[in-house]
Amino acid sequence: MQTERLLLRAFRLDDAPVLAAYRSDPQVARYQSWDAPFPLRDAVAFIAGLDGRDPRAEGWFQYAIERTQDGLLIGDVGVNRHDLGRQAEIGFTLEPRAQGHGYAAEAVRRVVDHLLVGEGLHRVHASVDGRNARSARLLSRLGFRREGLELQSGLGEGGRQGRGKRPDDARYAVLASEWSRSPSAESAPD
């Protein structure tokens, strides 16, 4: 899939060092389910696990976000299809230097449009660490509605190790019938 500035594609094995680097950044990992540092061997295993996976199949598929102007890998968007393919959960991560330039909004909007319009899914939802105000604002700007707050259901600071207090998980969703009315956020900063 392409946007004006991005290519959303399958991960390649040669992406592993960049994936490991941005997922190892504590500022990137703090609201995510993995621990920092994210070793290169884990990045290689993660990419190998995606190899040959059909992005339309149930379960997780991760799109690499590549900037078309220079071919740099700057992040990823995950899609977890379920409910016999009628719904999907999304998640997104950008490396720090790519944040604040509208890339996340552009990538997420393209993926959600593909799911709801291109493939006819009924609903797309996201779970955001309650402390992650930037991601919550991005989803709201794209037309997602906040559906609720799950108290102390998230992972603690530091990913899987769960250090610290368990944060709240904010739930966001958009229906296909709502998506056609959602505002454009192609150039809005993340």
Rank of each mutant, 00 (worst) to 15 (best):
S177L: 09
A45E: 15
R97Q: 07
T68Q: 08
G100Y: 06
A45P: 05
R166F: 05
A57F: 06
D83E: 15
D190K: 07
A57N: 03
L84W: 05
Q2F: 07
R141H: 12
E66C: 07
D25T: 08
Q27T: 15
S184A: 13
R145T: 10
R146Y: 14
F11V: 10
K165R: 13
F38R: 01
N80R: 14
R171S: 11
S180F: 00
R30Q: 03
P189N: 04
P17V: 05
E106G: 05
H122C: 09
L7C: 11
V128H: 02
F92K: 01
S180K: 05
A45H: 03
R146N: 07
R5M: 00
W179M: 10
S180H: 04
G52E: 04
D113R: 15
V112G: 02
A57R: 13
V128Q: 09
P189S: 01
I65D: 00
E89A: 13
E147Q: 14
Q62T: 14
D14R: 12
A133F: 12
L13Y: 07
A57V: 12
A185L: 00
E150Q: 15
F46A: 06
G162Q: 12
W60I: 15
L121I: 08
R56H: 13
I74Q: 06
V124D: 02
D190S: 09
L121H: 05
R134G: 10
H82G: 08
V28N: 05
D42Y: 04
L73Y: 01
A105D: 02
G100P: 00
G164E: 05
P167A: 09
A105H: 10
E95N: 03
G120S: 08
R110P: 02
P189E: 10
V28P: 03
L121K: 11
G91A: 09
A176I: 03
H114D: 14
V111L: 13
A36N: 09
G154D: 06
E178V: 11
L138R: 01
Q161W: 01
G159D: 08
P189H: 14
G130K: 07
L6C: 02
R146C: 00
Y22G: 06
R5V: 00
D25E: 08
P55E: 12
E119N: 08
R97S: 13
D70E: 08
D25G: 04
H122I: 07
Q161N: 03
Q87S: 02
R146K: 14
G85W: 07
A16S: 01
E147Y: 15
P55I: 04
Q87T: 02
D51P: 01
R110K: 13
Y172M: 00
P39G: 03
Q32W: 07
L50R: 12
L13F: 06
R171G: 02
A126N: 05
R30K: 15
H122N: 15
A104K: 01
R110G: 00
